[in-house]
């Protein structure tokens, strides 16, 4: 039996960029610590019992797929909210981030309702915000950087000042290219525009999710891994972006 079960929500629909890199990363880092894990792919039409999982993940998808996913999830929304409130680790990327909010407004002004889990909204603009991005964030009072790549037409605005961003933009665009904020970090949910292989290059974030998963099961998180390649890749982007 698997020590940990991670739900990968709608991989057939939300898989625009190398999102499975995040899943591979979590699974390997658990394995290297001696734990096995099972990735359960959730397909459209499945009833989801969110309390069965140690973590949930959803990747990026285009507007069309986002709409399908909102229609799927809207029935399970209160369960999802409850689990998030209770500290279920969750990573939502790109389009999956946008659909957690109140609505997503297309460039011609049509509003597509979101799941309304958190108090923010997204407006689509013509030009896309594209490029490498570096953030300043902190965990347990320790500052660290997050490095990745963003590519989004949506501009996201956090309305509730209580919702913390994932980090402050040092270089790049972030939520909307205006307020220097990127993503959200609420309880153990992280939602972000940093798509593709976010966790492999940011082992602090990967281990944060693993630590929470273990703590919730009463297992003490220990054992640092040899992260020299991870750190090299992280620093390579920082050097490229910040000079």
């Amino acid at each position: 039996m698997a020590d940990f079960i991670i739900a990968h929500l709608y991989p057939e629909l939300m898989n625009l960029y190398g999102d499975r890199g995040n899943i591979i990363c979590l699974q390997k880092r658990l394995e290297w610590r001696g734990y096995n894990s099972y990735i359960e792919a959730i397909s459209p039409g499945c009833q989801i019992e969110f309390n069965q999982y140690d973590m949930i993940f959803m990747g990026a998808g285009s507007d069309r797929e986002q709409k399908l996913v909102v229609n799927e999830l809207v029935h399970n929304c209160s369960d999802l909210k409850l689990e998030i409130e209770q500290g279920l680790p969750a990573l939502f990327v790109g389009g999956a981030y946008q659909l957690l909010g109140k609505y997503y407004e297309s460039s011609d002004g049509v509003q597509m309702p979101g799941l309304n889990l958190l108090d923010f909204y997204t407006q689509r603009e013509q030009n896309r915000l594209i490029g490498n991005i570096v953030l300043a964030a902190s965990l347990h009072g320790q500052p660290f950087t997050v490095a990745g790549f963003e590519n989004h037409a949506g501009r996201t605005y956090l309305e509730d000042k209580e919702i913390k961003a994932l980090g402050r933009v040092i270089s790049g665009f972030g939520n909307n290219g205006e307020d220097e904020q990127e993503g959200i970090w609420y309880k153990n949910l992280i939602a972000t525009y940093l798509h593709g292989p976010l966790l492999p290059k940011n082992p602090i974030l990967a281990d944060y999710f693993i630590e929470v998963m273990m703590n919730r099961k009463g297992i003490t998180f220990a054992s640092r891994l040899d992260d020299h390649i991870e750190n090299f890749a992280h620093e390579q982007i920082k050097k490229k972006v910040l000079g």
Partner: peptide
């Protein structure tokens, strides 16, 4: 320019470090 990323990809595909 992105040697680190491709090295990571091989590492997570179980290539011995």
């Amino acid at each position: 320019q992105r040697s680190g990323d491709i090295a990571l990809r091989f590492k997570y595909a179980d290539a011995p470090v």
